[in-house]
Structures are given as C-alpha cells and as structure tokens.
Computed example of a mutant assay.
Amino acid sequence: MDIETRAQEFEQALRRAGVRITRQRAALLRVLAGAGDHPDANQLYQRASEAGAGVSLATVYRTLSALETQGVILKLEFEGEPARFEPADGRHHDHMIDVETGEVMEFVNERIERLQAEIAAEMGYEIVRHRLELYVRRKT
C-alpha cells in the first residue's frame, strides 16, 4: 500500500473514532504511513516535527491510541523497549529484535509456521493467533 493510501486509511479510522483531523494530525499520519521501520511515539514526534508538523507529543500519543483502538495499527511491546507501532495490514510476520541496536526486523518462515501448527495439533489445539519475537545479536 502506498503512503497516501495508508494515510487516508488512518485518517478515515480517526474520523470513525470521532477525532478531528487537524493539519498537524494529518502530517503525523503521513509520517506514520511512510515509516518503513517500527517507530516509537518519540520517533514519530521527532519525524513529524522535522517535517514541520508542529504536533505535540500528547497529540502523537492520543492519535496512536485512537488508531490502535480502531485496529489499523498494532502496538508492539518488546522487552526493555518503548512501545513501537506498525500498520495492522493483516499479513502475518514475526519479529527479530537486535538487543544491541534495538533494530526490529520482520520475517516469515514457513518451517516455523508449520512446526508451531504441528506442535499445537499434537497437543489437541489449533493456533488462533500468535506472536514470535526473537531477541538476537550479531555473531562476531
């Protein structure tokens, strides 16, 4: 999905939640829509400020909360890190978190998915949803 389409999706979600779309909030939505990483609220605030949005940190938090409530973004809470955010676009993926740099990488591995399903089935269950987080460091 391109940045403008995603920003419009975020804007529509806020309107459904009864949130007024100000110039600052619209700029924040474009920053969030264009984020190729998993930014936290402070990073979004800094990026929006650098883009000239003039948005407050409180507005960033309120906007993220409303978007999460509307189900268009996911709040990711990794050990020892501030909450990060990503679009809830429905495509499943897992995360690797570099414990030294904080970098978050997405990955999909069919072998892991099959193994998880097999383990659940062996125990008489089916997976409804899951999250896998691998905390990693580069080998030296």
Rank of each mutant, 00 (worst) to 15 (best):
G102F: 05
Q70W: 01
D94M: 11
S49G: 15
S56N: 02
T59Y: 03
E106G: 10
E100P: 01
E68H: 14
G80A: 08
A66I: 01
E77M: 10
A48W: 03
A83E: 03
F107K: 10
V72T: 09
D89L: 07
L64W: 08
R84Q: 07
E68V: 09
L67Q: 01
V72Y: 06
L115F: 13
L57Q: 14
L115M: 13
A51M: 05
A51P: 03
F107T: 07
G90P: 05
F78A: 13
E100S: 08
L64Q: 09
E103D: 12
R91N: 09
V72W: 06
E103P: 01
D89S: 09
D98T: 10
I119W: 09
A58W: 06
F78G: 02
A51K: 14
A51S: 14
L44W: 03
D94R: 13
E103L: 14
E68Q: 14
I119Y: 13
R62I: 00
I97W: 02
D94I: 00
R91Y: 02
G102Y: 03
G90S: 02
S65F: 02
S65W: 02
Y45N: 08
H93T: 02
D40I: 05
H92Q: 11
T59V: 13
V72N: 04
Y61T: 11
A51N: 09
A88Y: 08
G52A: 02
E81Y: 11
I97A: 06
L57C: 00
H93V: 01
F78L: 15
R91W: 00
S49I: 01
R62Q: 13
D40G: 15
E77I: 10
G90T: 01
F107Q: 09
D94W: 12
G52V: 08
H93W: 04
E86H: 08
L67T: 04
T63W: 06
R91V: 11
I112M: 12
H92R: 15
V60L: 05
D40N: 15
P87Q: 01
N109Y: 07
E110G: 13
H92T: 06
A51W: 04
L74N: 12
E77P: 00
V72G: 07
E100Y: 04
A58H: 12
D89I: 01
G54Q: 05
T63I: 06
D40S: 10
Q43S: 11
K75T: 12
Y61D: 11
A48I: 05
E79T: 07
E110I: 10
G71P: 11
K75W: 00
L44V: 06
V60H: 08
R111V: 15
M96P: 00
L67V: 04
L57T: 08
V72P: 09
E113M: 08
R114I: 13
E79L: 14
D94S: 15
E106P: 04
